[in-house]
Design a protein around this nucleic acid. Structure first.
Length: 278
DNA sequence: GCGCAGGTAGAGT
DNA sequence: ACTCTACCTGCG
């Protein structure tokens, strides 16, 4: 077990930020995370965090996964103090970090996310993992399922993942798996590409448009200039940035700002409303 | 019953 | 280049 005092880190906020669909609150400040074929339990009370793994695995994997090498206060300090909206949003979601997740896992996750709701996205991914992911055992002796490799999905019929509740997105995922296995899409090459090249390459995949490509670039490749524009972001842009988002000022950190805005649009409004009602 | 939920491809102007 | 629409599914 590793214990650390951490600033600008909230498991609760990261769980709800919607960048990872296999991260769950287990109650009483406890959380579980599955990334690829790894499993981790975390306990957080304020800044104090316990990671239930050995030091080697923490240093070798989870430290990078949670982007602990980056000081997020620097991103928050970039924010224009005269921008009351972004200041409020970043204050509300200041524990969010941009995770460094697996490329293939993010491709599948965000193919599934389109025109879909968070509850069903999670269910879809759980179904796929349980059916096609390798069975593993955690330290407690409980069974969990790794995220299936492309090879495990490439042989399926295009409609076969409808059984996992993917709906019309089934063929997107199966075709992406075939493309990765055949080498038509070179995942290792994409990992080394610039943002522009990676985005362009990802958009060659059937079912990957601009928004999904940007999510993959941000959450897997850590291209922080990616600014995924979904319905919530469009709403916020219309309400607060009629003259366009200040990309110049936030160059290279737009993705971080996107997360603060997205999280605030989803959860900040009701929070504010509750405060006003009291 | 109908519109919408982290959009996109394909067809039509 | 831009606008329009169908698309799985389940929930309010």
């Amino acid at each position: 077990m590793i214990t650390k005092e951490l600033d600008y880190f909230s498991m609760d906020q990261i769980c709800r930020s919607g960048q990872c669909f296999r991260m769950n609150p287990e109650g009483e400040g406890r959380y579980s995370v599955i990334a690829g074929d790894r499993y981790l339990e975390i306990r957080q009370q304020g800044k104090t965090c316990c990671f239930y793994c050995d030091e080697g695995e923490f240093e070798n994997f989870w430290n990078d996964y949670f982007d602990f090498g980056t000081d997020y206060s620097a991103y928050i300090r970039m924010i224009n103090p005269r921008d009351a909206y972004l200041t409020e949003a970043a204050g509300f979601g200041s524990g969010i970090r941009i995770l460094r997740q697996d490329l293939w896992e993010m491709i599948v996750s965000f193919l599934i996310s389109q025109q879909n709701n968070i509850v069903r996205i999670r269910r879809c991914i759980r179904n796929i993992c349980e059916l096609y992911g390798e069975e593993k055992t955690n330290a407690r002796g409980e069974i969990y399922h790794a995220f299936p490799e492309p090879e495990a999905l490439a042989f399926l019929d295009e409609d076969e993942l409808m059984a996992c509740n993917l709906g019309y997105r089934s063929k997107y995922v199966v075709r992406a798996a075939r493309s990765a296995v055949s080498g038509e899409t070179d995942l290792d090459a994409i990992r080394k590409m610039s943002y522009a090249k990676a985005r362009q390459e990802l958009m060659k995949l059937y079912g990957v448009g601009e928004k999904v490509a940007d999510c993959i670039c941000l959450f897997a490749l850590h291209h922080l200039q990616a600014f995924p524009a979904d319905t919530h972001i469009h709403q916020a842009m219309e309400a607060h940035y009629r003259r366009g988002f200040p990309n110049r000022r936030y160059r290279g950190a737009q993705g971080v700002m996107q997360q603060y805005i997205f999280y605030y649009e989803l959860f900040g409004k009701e929070h504010k409303k509750e405060r006003e009602e009291v």
